[in-house]
């Protein structure tokens, strides 16, 4: 017979394991689509699920859990200095495996151009478009990730699409160079020849 604290811990652990089993791949995907630095990706994944474990009571049930995790990963990524030397020992093994197995997708010709334009968009626009196209979320779901109202998400998405479409039709030289290199801009720095 288990005492109540054991039941609570077991129950908590069981819930986390379910959450992790269903979501660790999508969350790693989310992170790797935003940074090509596999060391950072391993840390951000570990940190995101560490947060989930510590705040398990705040994680919504059902499909919304993944949206909560996307939102958390987004904040972790934003707060994680690129190429940070502060590493989670937890992520050592994953870091080593990702370094060996991950090869950033090569983009040439038109795809490279589109990618470059996309990466020059403001971060907020990029994230809205990415959540739609890469994670396949609708505005209501995006609202949960970004912690805004569905209506606001819808309007911002509309504006982001317009800006992206406009940027795609502009000559490349007219596009402003990024003033700040943030997480996820690894590919852009390569493209633009900026120091990493």
């Amino acid at each position: 017979m288990l005492s109540p604290p054991d039941v609570t811990l077991d129950e908590r652990r069981r819930r986390f394991e379910e959450l992790y089993a269903v979501n660790h791949v999508p969350i790693l995907g989310y992170v790797l689509r935003r940074t090509d630095n596999t060391d950072d990706a391993a840390d951000v994944l570990a940190d995101t699920f560490l947060t989930a474990w510590r705040r398990l009571e705040d994680v919504p049930a059902g499909p919304s859990a993944r949206l909560w995790l996307y939102g958390t990963a987004r904040r972790v990524l934003a707060n994680h200095p690129r190429g940070s030397r502060r590493r989670l020992a937890l992520a050592d093994r994953l870091r080593a495996e990702l370094a060996a197995s991950y090869h950033p997708p090569e983009q040439v010709g038109e795809l490279a151009e589109i990618t470059a334009v996309f990466r020059r968009l403001p971060e907020a626009d990029r994230e809205l478009l990415a959540l739609t196209a890469w994670e396949g979320l609708n505005p209501s779901q995006i609202a949960l990730v970004l912690d805004c109202s569905p209506n606001a998400a819808r309007i911002r998405l509309h504006r982001a699409r317009r800006r992206f479409a406009a940027a795609l039709t502009q000559p490349r030289a007219a596009a402003p160079a990024p003033t700040q290199v943030t997480n996820g801009d690894f590919a852009l720095t390569q493209y633009a020849g900026l120091p990493r």
């Binding site: 689509r33 997708p105 983009q107 795809l111 589109i114 990618t115 996309f118 478009l129 990415a130 739609t132 196209a133 890469w134 699409r161 992206f164 479409a165 795609l168």
Partner: peptide, 10 residues
Amino acid sequence: SPVASASGGA
């Protein structure tokens, strides 16, 4: 895949 759908989304 990211790039194809990013352009499609826009």
